[in-house]
Simulated scan of single mutants.
Amino acid sequence: MNFQLSEEQGMLREASRDLLSDRAPIEHVRAWMDRDGDDGDVDPEVWRLTADLGWPGLGLPEEYGGSGQGLVELALVAEEMGRALGRGPFAPTAIVGRALTATGSPGLRSEVLPELAAGSAWATWAFAEPRAPWSLDGVRATARVDGGAFVLDGVKTAVQDAGGARWLLVTALHDGVPASFLVERAAPGVTVRRQRTLDPTRAFHEVRLDGVHVPDDRRLGAGPGGIQRLLDEASVLRCADALGVMRRLLELTVEHTTTRVQFGQPIGAFQAVKHSAADMALLVHGAHAATHYAAMAADADTDDAARAACAAASYVSAGAGEVAARALQLHGGIGFTWEHDLHLFLRRARADSVLYGDAAVHRDRLCTLLRPSPTADS
C-alpha cells in the first residue's frame, strides 16, 4: 500500500500545520481552556482563518461550495489538529457534512451545506448516550411521529462543540430502528449543558431532547447501515487526531531524553530509554499505517473498509494509551505537572481512546465482521 502523499495533500498538511503553529500555539490553547460557557468552545478568529483555508468545506461537494475531497484529506487535517491540540468543530462538522451529502434530501443539502462550507455555521453529531456503549446498540433516544413531524426525546453525551453549533445531527430509534435527524440547536426542547471532561483542550456537552419537533424533511435517508458507516468514518478521523497526539508525544519525549542529563550524559543514551522510545516509534508507525489505510479504503469503498476502520480504531485506541504511558514514564514526575505541556497531550490521548468507541467495542465488531456467515461453506 502506497502512503506517499500527493503534492496537493502535502501542501494541505503543511498549510494546516503552519496555521495551527502560528495562530493556535500551545499558549493559545491554554488561554482558551480557562473560558466558561459557549464562548469558550471555539475561537472565532481561528475558525475564520480555517474557513479561509477551506477546512469546513474540504469534504463537501463543489456544487455546495466545497472542495470535493475525501476522508484521506480530512484525516490529514485531523492529524494536525491532534498534533497541535487544536480545538474547534472541524471533525464534527465534517462528519455531519458527509452524512448530509450521502443521505440528506436535495433541499436539506442546499440549505445547510453552503453554510457549512463557508464556515458561517457549524454542526455536530449527537450520538453517544450516558452509560451506554458507543454503538448502535447503545442508542436509547426515541423518535415518534406526530402529524407531519417527528418528536425526539432522550439524552446525549460527549457532543463536541454543541454549545455554539447551528445544527445537531441526532441519532434516535424510530420504531426500534436507528435513524438520523437534523435538529436546530435553538429549537424548543433542546437543552445544552457544558460538561467537565478529562480533556480540557476540547468542549463537550450534554444535549437533552424533551419533545423536540422535527419536520419530516429533516430526517436523513440513512438506515442502520449508513449510520454504522458514518460511525466508522468518525472513528477514522478520531484515529487521525490520536495519531497527531502520538507523534507529538514522541517528539516531546525525544527532545526531553536528548537534553535531560543524568550521570554525566543524556538519559537517551541509556539502552532501556532507547528501547522504550523505539517501542513508541513502532506504535506511531503502526497507527499511521492503520489510520491512513482505513481512510483510503473508505474513499475507495473497498469490501474491507469496515474491517479496516475497526482495526484502526482498536489499534490506535490501545496504542495511544501505551505511547502516552511511555512518554510520561520517560519524562518522570515533571509530566504530571500542570505547567508542563505533556499532561495536556496525555489527556487528549486518553479522550481519543474512548471517543466513538474504545478498543473493546471495535474489536468486538471486528470479530463479528470476520465471522463466517451461517450460509458460508464450512
Results as ranks from 00 to 15, higher is better:
160 Q>R: 09
37 G>A: 11
210 D>M: 07
141 A>S: 14
366 L>C: 06
271 Q>L: 12
266 P>V: 11
266 P>G: 13
371 R>K: 14
151 V>G: 07
11 M>D: 13
1 M>H: 09
119 G>E: 07
254 V>C: 05
39 D>A: 11
194 R>M: 11
116 L>K: 15
14 E>V: 02
130 P>W: 08
137 D>R: 05
248 R>E: 03
353 S>L: 08
103 T>H: 09
266 P>N: 14
108 L>T: 09
275 H>C: 08
216 D>Y: 13
323 V>R: 13
114 P>T: 07
98 R>P: 01
101 T>L: 06
258 T>W: 11
126 A>V: 03
377 D>C: 09
96 V>N: 01
189 G>C: 05
148 G>W: 10
266 P>Y: 13
342 L>H: 10
59 G>R: 13
265 Q>W: 08
199 D>V: 01
7 E>Y: 15
120 S>Q: 15
134 W>N: 12
349 A>M: 01
184 E>H: 04
274 K>F: 05
31 A>C: 03
317 S>R: 09
301 D>V: 10
37 G>W: 15
237 L>Y: 10
311 A>G: 06
371 R>T: 15
359 A>N: 14
345 F>A: 02
148 G>D: 13
189 G>A: 05
81 M>G: 15
302 T>Q: 08
111 E>P: 12
135 S>H: 07
275 H>N: 10
227 I>Q: 00
240 A>E: 04
291 T>E: 07
243 L>G: 01
368 T>S: 12
336 F>Y: 08
322 E>M: 06
283 L>P: 14
170 V>Q: 06
30 R>Y: 02
193 R>S: 09
103 T>I: 01
277 A>M: 11
139 V>L: 04
145 V>M: 09
135 S>R: 08
49 L>G: 02
193 R>V: 10
140 R>A: 13
108 L>I: 06
100 L>W: 09
95 I>C: 08
174 H>P: 03
136 L>K: 00
119 G>I: 11
361 V>E: 15
33 M>P: 12
366 L>P: 05
255 E>R: 02
268 G>W: 11
227 I>A: 00
11 M>E: 15
44 P>D: 10
276 S>N: 07
70 G>Q: 08
135 S>Q: 07
14 E>H: 04
209 L>K: 07
282 L>S: 11
342 L>D: 02
288 H>C: 13
281 A>I: 03
324 A>R: 00
124 T>E: 03
154 G>I: 10
294 A>Q: 12
3 F>R: 13
318 A>Y: 14
145 V>H: 08
361 V>G: 03
94 A>E: 04
50 T>R: 12
252 L>F: 02
177 V>M: 01
88 G>T: 08
145 V>F: 04
268 G>H: 12
281 A>F: 04
116 L>E: 14
135 S>L: 06
195 Q>W: 09
289 A>W: 11
72 V>Y: 06
7 E>Q: 14
68 G>I: 07
170 V>C: 02
161 D>L: 05
317 S>K: 10
364 D>M: 13
3 F>V: 12
167 W>K: 03
305 A>H: 05
160 Q>T: 12
78 A>S: 15
269 A>T: 14
108 L>V: 08
137 D>N: 05
44 P>Q: 09
250 L>E: 09
344 L>W: 00
225 G>K: 00
290 A>W: 14
